[in-house]
Design a protein around this nucleic acid. Structure first.
Length: 437
RNA sequence: GGACAGGUGGCCGAGUGGUUGAAGGCGCUAGUCUCGAAAACUAGAAUAGGUGCAAACCUAUCGCGAGUUCGAAUCUCGCCCUGUCCGCCA
């Protein structure tokens, strides 16, 4: 409890935390934290002193009674007076404990809404404009009269927004025949690559999770409005990062099992509250989309290396598909709540003449591990340590489908199948447009 | 959904109102032995928090939360979870 940030460390080096939060645009938080923490500890100490007295007296009662010296109330015996002494502490202890708990809950709630401290290598900045490009791979395709994915998809008779809207409203799509198959092929290709070449273990995971899980990965308590909730109190996962990372919830992982590298293909559900009017056309921003997720659980000292490795695994998917992309480091103002450092991979979309996000790889450090009590113990070490958690898209299937359609579109409206996907397409090498009369 | 049975330390498992943080085993750490290892033996070791320079001491924790009691792992109530059987079902 009260562990989502190291309170001892906050007490000792409040400046470190405040400057970290300042880089995220927050006011100094430690004065309030320290005030609540001090109040709580004072109450705790007082309660513990009384408890100690109570326990001592109770123990004496036990000793006396075991010797057969049973006291009678009001009789003035030693036992009876001890019993009364203990009873006298009761109310006072209860009051103190109640206040201590209340203060602790307040502190806990306050802390649970504060974002992770950015890594020192993360560039400062207020918005995406301040993100820093790390590398640019492949030449962006410049096509004459390049079409956007929804025009291509509809031209192929494989993408139907209208029908999807009838049953589900906006931000849903219905894929058909060759395009549906292409989506499936992409997902299989990604999973196979990560499991067979990158050493990830494939998991098939729950998509409905409880509060605790989302609290652990950081979506709750602050971002409930971005999520869908069922009438049973479950939440639909916005990414299988939630399910994969929470596999180590409340556990002490055997160090020999680290690093854990997990992957899964799942639908992701997002309410997209606050994104009204953004990317309304096409399937860039949907309430439901498939994503292959990568999660790594590592020792504290190894998460930075793992972050680079994971990003390379995600990039490898795009390389194999021969898609141009660039990798950027998100600045402090653009990073997610739980992240210490994030690389975004943006794929080139000829139809939009722009790079668009297709993957986001984050090192969360011990931020999520503290929230979900995920630890490991090193041989010889006295204390357990929090694991480090990382997550990344490897990659977003829906957006990758868009990228393939736009990059492999032909002037006649057909779409070639990338070599890497051919083994998954059952002999189909090209998607042909509908013939209009 | 109905009926039972359970949830104890890193793991397994005993305990069923009183000096119990909790037997025993496995695993772990150190030592003895050994050329070395294994085995055996000896010792140590739960987690979190608080006070303290430290040694150390104190408090809490036996699924979670209330309650009974001078005192709860143990009794009562509620909740959550797991297992088994029945019903339903992809």
């Amino acid at each position: 409890m009260y562990s989502m940030f190291d309170l001892k460390l906050i007490r000792e080096t409040p400046g470190f935390f405040d400057s970290g939060w300042k880089r995220r645009g927050l006011e100094p938080q430690t004065p309030k934290i320290i005030e609540m923490d001090e109040k709580r500890r004072a109450l705790l100490t007082e309660a513990q002193e009384l408890q100690s007295k109570r326990n001592e007296a109770s123990k004496q009662v036990g000793i006396l009674m075991s010797k057969g010296i049973v006291g009678t109330f009001g009789g003035g015996s030693v036992t009876a007076s001890l019993m009364q002494e203990v009873a006298g502490y009761k109310d006072r202890i209860a009051t103190l404990e109640e206040e201590e708990k209340k203060t602790g809950d307040e502190l806990n709630d306050f802390l649970s809404r504060l974002p992770n401290i950015p890594d020192e290598t993360v560039p400062d900045g207020a918005s995406e404009k301040d993100n820093k490009e790390v590398r640019k791979i492949g030449a962006p395709k410049l096509l004459n009269s390049a079409k956007e994915h929804f025009d291509i998809g509809e031209g192929l008779g494989g993408m139907d927004f209208e029908t999807a809207a009838k049953m589900s409203g906006s931000r849903f799509v219905l894929l058909k025949s060759g395009v549906a198959r292409l989506e499936r092929a992409l997902a299989q290709f990604m999973l196979d690559t990560h499991t067979q070449e990158h050493g990830y273990t494939e998991l098939s995971v729950p998509l409905l999770v409880r509060d605790e899980a989302l609290y652990g990965t950081g979506q709750l308590p602050k971002f409930a409005e971005d999520l869908f909730k069922t009438n049973t109190g479950h939440w639909l996962v916005p990414t299988s990062e939630v399910s994969l990372t929470n596999t180590v919830m409340d556990s002490i992982v055997d160090i020999g099992d680290l690093p854990l590298r997990l992957t899964s293909l799942t639908p992701c559900f997002r309410s997209e509250a606050g994104a009204a009017g953004k990317d309304t056309r096409g399937m860039i921003r949907q309430h439901q989309f498939y994503k292959v997720e990568l999660v790594s659980i590592t020792e504290a000292e190894k998460s930075n290396d793992e972050h680079e490795r994971m990003t390379a695994c995600a990039e490898n998917i795009l390389k194999k598909l021969d898609l141009a992309y660039r990798t950027i480091t998100l600045c402090t103002g653009d990073m997610g709540f739980s992240a210490r450092k994030t690389y975004d991979i943006e794929v080139w979309l000829p139809g939009q003449s722009a790079y668009r996000e297709i993957s986001s790889c984050s090192n969360c450090g011990d931020f999520q591990a503290r929230r979900m009590m995920a630890r490991y113990k090193k041989e010889g070490d006295k204390h357990t340590k929090y694991v480090h958690t990382l997550n990344g898209s490897g990659v977003a299937v829906g957006r990758c489908l868009i990228a393939v359609l736009e990059n492999y579109q032909q002037p006649d409206g057909s779409v070639l199948i990338p070599d890497a996907l051919k083994p998954y397409m059952g002999g189909i090498t090209k998607l042909e447009p509908l013939q209009h009369a």
